[in-house]
Structures are given as C-alpha cells and as structure tokens.
C-alpha cells in the first residue's frame, strides 16, 4: 500500500501547489516593497504594522501547510480511487495509441486505410458519371483554329506555334539512335546464378536478379501448357480441371477408410480422414459442392472460384 500511496500522492502535489504558489508569488513582492520603504525611513509606523500583519499571515500560511498535507494523507481513501481511475485512463490512452500506431504501420497507405481516415471516399471510387461527349477540338470550351493559328481554351486565347519537325529530321534522329543504341530484345529470362541451358544463345538471355518480381522459383507448368492456358477460350481452366481429376482418381483409389494418401502431387488437398470413407460417385456432382464446401479441402481453389465468379459477373 505504501508505494501505491506515494505514487498517488504525486499527482496531488502536482494538482495542489497552484494556490500556495500563487500566494507566495505575490507576497515577496509586497515584502520587498516594504523593505525598501524601511530603509528610506519615511512613514515607518504604518508600514511596520502592515508588514507585521503580513508576516503573521505568512507564518499562519506556512503553519497551515503541514495540516494540509496531513489532511491529504487522511483523505487518501477517496483520492486513491480517483488516482487509480486516472492511472487507468492514462494507461488506456497509451494502449489505444500503441494499437493505433501498430495498425497504421500494418496497412498504412492502403486504400482501405485512406478510406477509413476519410482521405478517400469509398463510395465515389471508380464510379464515374459519364459525360456526354464533345469533340475535344471544337466545343464551347475549346476551339482549336489551326488555320488562324490560335486556340481558345477555357476562355483564354493561345497562340499556336506550328510543328516544324520534318520527315528528314525524323529519319536523322532515327539514324542517330540506331547508331547510339544497338540492342536486341532478349527473349529468354534466366535467374542470376543459374546455368545456361545448352540450346540457348547467350545473346538472347536477360539475367534477372533473384529479388525481381519475375524471378519465380520454378514454374509448375511448361511453356506449351502455359501457352495453351492463355489461348483457352472456354471450359474449365486446365489446372482446376487437373486437380479435380486427380482428386477424383484418389478418391476412387482409396477405399480404405483409415489410410491417408500422401501423394505429393496434391499439395493443396490435405483431406480430412473421415471424408474418404463417404461414398463419392462423381466429384463434380452437387454432393461435392454441398458436402465439401465447408471442409476446406482445397483452400487455394475455393478462393479462386470465388474470384472467378466475381470476375465472371463483370466479364459477361
């Protein structure tokens, strides 16, 4: 209890002093004034009385201070509660600040953050009220009059200077550049440190540092598949299809209830044990959707499907 009371009396010392301090601040000036009066020795009597009275007041004030302190200590009960509340409030404020700071550090500058802080209006973003179209060269605000070599824009009139660049000058610049910059567009990207594949011409290689956004570890699809994926016009995307088929094959293969297949080709599918015992005919049946939806068997794929849908809604 003792350390607590010391800690709590601190704010009270901070709170109480103003009154005595104010008193003291006025007193010394009065005393000094009377003291200077004393040395001059004029009208000493009246002033002496006043001085004595004031010194007496001061003594009384000084005498009254210890009881005040004592009374503070006596009233420590309710004060302690008040101090405690104050302390809690200060702690809460600090904690809140810390939380806010750390949250800001997490997503400072994100659009969501800016919207939250009211610097961006979420409702407005991306929704454009379409303006009816005006010829940008000739409308009430803009008139470009190339013959008269003037342009009026937003109520101001500008002088137009004709473009002087000729075909010949253009070609000269092209020639200059083709001499200055001799370049062949690289067609193969390789990660720095990797070895050069045998069939690749070193002149066509662009070496990419490991921290570059293109420098994926190793791609799971070969070039031909990737190309087919880009050109695919309809149907189920190839990897999604392959995963479905592999999952189906695994389900058919595993008739054993307790055995968990640990096939490395299916990283996504850490299937719950009990599911493999259920009778599954076709994965793509409605059963697949309804029963497995919440089992999180393919976290990556589910999120993908959702986004597929959201994109597809717009893409129609």
């Amino acid at each position: 209890m003792a350390p607590a009371s010391i800690a709590i009396s601190l704010p009270f010392r901070l709170l109480l002093p103003p009154r005595p301090f104010r008193g003291r601040a006025t007193w010394p000036r009065a005393i000094r004034a009377t003291a200077s009066g004393d040395t001059s020795g004029v009208a000493g009597g009246e002033r002496k009385v006043a001085l004595e009275r004031r010194v007496g007041d001061l003594k009384a004030l000084v005498a009254s201070v210890p009881p005040a302190v004592a009374s503070i200590q006596r009233n420590i009960g309710p004060n302690f509660v008040a101090g405690f509340c104050l302390g809690i409030a200060v702690l809460a404020a600090v904690a809140r600040q810390v939380i806010i700071r750390s949250r800001e550090r997490d997503n400072r500058g994100s659009v969501a953050d800016l919207v939250r802080r009211g610097q961006l209006k979420s409702g407005q973003r991306g929704t454009a009220k379409l303006r009816t179209y005006d010829d940008p060269f000739n409308n009430p605000l803009v008139k470009i009059d190339e013959d008269a070599s003037t342009a009026q824009m937003f109520g101001k009139e500008y002088r137009l200077a004709p473009v002087r660049l000729t075909k010949e000058q253009q070609e000269l610049h092209q020639k200059r550049r083709s001499r200055a910059y001799q370049w062949k567009r690289p067609t193969v990207f390789l990660r720095e440190g990797d070895s050069l594949p045998p069939h690749v011409d070193p002149d066509t290689v662009r070496w990419i540092p490991a921290n570059h956004p293109f420098a994926a570890a190793s791609s799971e699809v070969d070039e031909e598949t990737a190309k087919q994926n880009v050109y695919q016009k309809d149907g189920v995307p190839s990897r999604v299809k392959a995963e479905h088929e592999a999952l189906q094959a695994r389900l058919e293969a595993s008739n054993d209830v307790t055995k968990l297949p640990s096939n490395s080709s299916m990283q996504h599918n850490e299937r719950p044990l009990r599911l493999s015992g259920k009778p599954f005919g076709n994965l793509q049946s409605s059963e697949f959707g309804s029963e497995l939806e919440n089992q999180d068997i393919e976290p990556g794929k589910h999120s993908c499907d959702e986004s597929l849908q959201s994109n597809r809604l717009e893409g129609q």
Partner: peptide, 22 residues
Amino acid sequence: HLTAADVLAGDCRLDQALVRHR
C-alpha cells in the same frame, strides 16, 4: 483477383482475368 500469372498457371481463363470497368 485474377491476373495473367493465374492464366499462365491454368487457374483461370484469360477472359476471367479481364476486369471490366463498372
């Protein structure tokens, strides 16, 4: 949600990765 990288990987088709303006 979907990018050209997803198209390459076979996670979606190209038309699905195109985001249409509202």
